[in-house]
Computed example of a mutant assay.
Amino acid sequence: MSAGNLPWEGGCRCGQVRVKVTAPPLLTMACHCTGCQRMTASAFSLSVAIPSEGFAVTRGEPVIGGLHGATRHYFCPHCMSWMFTRPEGMDWFVNLRATMLDDASWFTPFIETWTSEGLPWAATPAVHSYAALPALEDYDGLLREYAEQALKPKG
Rank of each mutant, 00 (worst) to 15 (best):
S45C: 11
F107S: 11
A104C: 05
S129F: 05
L142E: 00
Y146F: 14
S81L: 10
S47C: 09
W114K: 13
Y146T: 01
A70Y: 01
T115I: 13
F55A: 03
E53F: 10
Y139E: 05
P109I: 09
P25A: 13
R59L: 06
K20N: 04
C12A: 08
F110K: 00
V94P: 08
G35Y: 06
E148K: 11
H128A: 09
M29I: 03
R13D: 11
A49L: 15
H32G: 12
D138K: 03
L6N: 08
K154F: 02
E53R: 13
G35E: 12
P62W: 06
D140N: 04
H128M: 04
Q149R: 14
R72L: 12
P24E: 14
R144N: 03
E9R: 08
G89N: 13
T124D: 11
S105W: 10
V127K: 09
T58E: 03
V57C: 13
L133D: 05
C31D: 03
P24F: 09
F93Y: 15
C31G: 05
D140Y: 00
L67N: 11
A123Q: 13
P51W: 10
E145Y: 02
T113S: 02
L151S: 13
C76D: 11
C14P: 04
I111G: 07
E53L: 07
G66D: 11
A135I: 02
M39Q: 14
P7Q: 07
G155N: 14
R97N: 14
A30H: 06
G118P: 03
W92C: 00
M1I: 13
F44S: 02
C14E: 00
T99M: 04
G54A: 01
V127Q: 04
A98N: 09
G66H: 05
K154T: 15
P153T: 06
S42H: 11
D103A: 09
T28H: 10
F110I: 03
G54V: 01
G54C: 00
W8N: 00
C79G: 01
E137W: 01
T40L: 03
T22N: 02
P120K: 14
T85W: 05
M39A: 13
T22E: 09
T71N: 10
R13K: 08
A126L: 11
R38D: 04
G141P: 01
P77N: 09
D138R: 03
H78Y: 06
A135D: 13
T71H: 09
P87S: 10
E88T: 07
S105G: 15
T108D: 15
R38S: 06
M90R: 11
A147S: 14
R144C: 02
A23V: 08
G15K: 14
A150V: 00
T99I: 08
R144Y: 01
T124Y: 12
L101T: 09
M83A: 04
A70T: 08
R72S: 14
G35L: 13
C79L: 08
A131L: 05
R59E: 15
D102L: 05
R144S: 00
M39T: 15
H32K: 05
L26V: 07
L46M: 14
A43I: 07
A132Q: 14
G141S: 02
P51Y: 06
E9F: 07
A49P: 02
Q149A: 15
E137S: 06
E148A: 15
S129L: 00
H78M: 06
E137L: 01
G65V: 10
A98D: 01
F75Q: 12
F107E: 07
L151C: 06
A43L: 13
Y146G: 01
N95W: 10
R38T: 02
